[in-house]
Nucleic acid binder design. Sequence first.
DNA 1: GCATATAAATTGCACATGCAAGCAATATGC
DNA 2: GCATATTGCTTGCATGTGCAATTTATATGC
Lengths: 148, 148
Amino acid sequence: MTDLCTTNALRLIQVAEDFRAGLSGEFSAVHGISVNEFLLLLHLERATANRLSRVDLAKRMHVSASTITRMAAPMEKIGLVGREVDDRDARLVFVVATPTGREKLSQSLATFAKRAGYLFSDRWEDAELKQFSQMLRRLIGGTDDALA
Amino acid sequence: MTDLCTTNALRLIQVAEDFRAGLSGEFSAVHGISVNEFLLLLHLERATANRLSRVDLAKRMHVSASTITRMAAPMEKIGLVGREVDDRDARLVFVVATPTGREKLSQSLATFAKRAGYLFSDRWEDAELKQFSQMLRRLIGGTDDALA
DNA sequence: GCATATAAATTGCACATGCAAGCAATATGC
DNA sequence: GCATATTGCTTGCATGTGCAATTTATATGC
């Protein structure tokens, strides 16, 4: 409250949760997936070779490895993702998006973009958007596991 | 990702989740509460008369009313919050922070502020923090249910 | 004033998630 | 090369959460 950093962190959380909550309803209604499933597909798309091991996915999504196991199972069943094993290390089971999964991601991304447009409505100049983008970039850790 | 609004929304979610994930561990370890319990206490502190009905709390926290019922129960048990009934409308059961709850909030807020300081580390000028704060403010709906 | 509609809160049920344990495969120390 | 440690993944259990139905209380139509 008094501290600017605190205020900013609180507002950051608030804006993100507001946006995510609005997204959640439209995603399940229109695309039949959760926001987390969308983010999983997006992480795959952004990853090198378009595939990630379960532990990598877990770290990037801030969830446990067991959650990835249990998220991937139904997504495999409906054909959004598949699994690939590593030739050298038989422990690794990669999650990889199928063409169906990529199509689902593409459609969901359109919905996401629409709502992102609402969020920044009309009153944001292009220069402001760029500046905001750079500020957010500074807040994301230097690791290459970022979505955007 | 070509779209700036989309990039910004993705980064917003990413930064908020990164920060929240880091916070989560320290909160449960040091203060024995979850981030959501912290936010509940914070919403009470920010509310007029320092109390809120369960449905109000649910709307502000983007959770269902049943979640509030089930969050408040253990918090009552350990003395962080109490309940007050409305004189005119016997349906309303307000959640109100106890002195113990306020003390817990105060301590947790210190942890929050410390991590918020880490987030914006050294390289942020005061003017940048202010500008960022104003940008975030524009993204928060005009309603008065904001935390900061 | 009474019947109906609406609203707040709770509860049953289903599902999602984290933690700890277990299992399988690889890496390390000697 | 073998015993041990580490890693990746899965599963059992406990907890958290949403949706729908229920209950209790207030508001509305007449």
